[in-house]
Design a protein around this nucleic acid. Structure first.
Lengths: 213, 213
DNA sequence: GACATCAGGTGACTTTTGTCACCGGCCATC
DNA sequence: GATGGCCGGTGACAAAAGTCACCTGATGTC
């Protein structure tokens, strides 16, 4: 991807914002880049800004007390991190881990600006509300899948979500990575994947999985 | 509890609101009462208002495809329903069930008023943000407990939450009710409770459980 | 008092999931 | 081309959770 400026990103990814709001953001946000695998935020960290993703892909997951990971959802360009909004607004520490899975770039909107943006710019207000709504729903889906479904269904749900999100039927995932995301173990995932393959839902290869149908 | 007016409730439960905001709310909200066990909201329902709880206790739970329930959290007087805010703002249907577990009263703030309140009254804005933040965190705790813990730990977590919320060490719960809330089965819960009793953490009686320590 | 209903207990069994040990193939690198 | 690390497969077993059948005792009702 080409080297974009703050202004380019804002015009490309947030066309719905009023021109005055765009100017305001361009004047006040700061840009920060992360290499793939770098952590953007970790449990206990305090935010001083609301985070907008403008390039790359960020994986949000919950960390258990014994170091387990539990995948929740991805953020992509045009998304805001709901947690950073909430925590920044309240000066609270985050309870979630964020890792760049591609080289990624974010814009940081200073907290001090938030109140004014919310009051003065309807398009910002709606953007924030929509961010809360969609993340809340995403969390409810996650709860559904662990509360009501067996690991086999969760695995299906997970693969489908990966496919949709990455926009491809070729998933570059190892069994170990999947097991980690679902807080399970490799052997179990391998067996379940094998069953899915026998049912003709997927095809297994080394280092990647092909989604059928 | 005595028969309160809208004005009484607002002054008692929301003292942090600016006087002008209180007047505005008193002039525009409508009050509605529910009997214990009545449903306040159900999956698929559309909201035309943001809901504030002013009396009683409302249990929010997720409903699975096959009619299972899964308890998430309680709302009590002074709380707002985050889901109703989000859904009302976006005209989306709710994905959650709300049931009055005591005779309860709510105030309904028309959607049409929301934008204005958010823009004009900082104390409303902060109240809304705090509502989002605390519900989000509550959901994260729920996810933690199902993602990382066994049923035994979840049961302990559940009993503790009930005790804290209801402000008592005598929980009037049947094993079947607990099993339903945790999406498990009565026999399993009975066995785990027995183990907790043997470890001296609780005492079991007919129709109620005493929390020790 | 006879009866039905409900809360809870228990043993036997199954299914699901996790764990351990070990194997084989692929691949990068020296 | 030998080595070692990663990826995946597999069998055997253990632990956790769910299911089934049946029992006991308390409670309420007619």
């Amino acid at each position: 991807m080409t080297q974009n400026s703050i202004s380019d990103y804002i015009h490309e990814l947030f066309p719905q914002f009023e021109p005055v709001l765009k100017e305001k953001l361009i004047a006040h946000v700061t840009m920060k880049s992360f290499k793939a695998t770098e952590l953007l935020m970790q449990t206990g960290q305090y935010f001083r800004s609301t985070v907008l993703i403008v390039k790359g892909r960020v994986k949000l997951y919950r960390e258990g007390t014994d170091g387990n990971e539990f995948f929740m959802y991805y953020l992509q360009p045009g998304d805001a991190c709901a947690l950073s909004m909430i925590c920044a607004a309240k000066q609270e520490s985050s309870k979630i881990m964020g890792k760049a899975i591609e080289d990624s770039t974010i814009l940081m909107v200073p907290i001090a600006l938030m109140d004014e943006l919310m009051k003065r710019y309807p398009s910002w207000y709606y953007f924030v509300m929509e961010t809360y709504r969609s993340r809340f729903e995403e969390l409810l889906l996650v709860i559904d899948s662990i509360a009501f479904n067996g690991l086999d269904e969760r695995l299906g749900f997970y693969l489908k979500k990966q496919g949709e999100h990455l926009g491809t039927k070729q998933l570059n995932l190892t069994h170990q990575e999947i097991a980690t995301d679902l807080n399970s173990s490799r052997e179990v995932i391998s067996r379940l994947l094998k069953k899915m393959e026998q049912r003709g839902e997927i095809q297994l290869y080394r280092n990647y999985i092909a989604l059928l149908n």
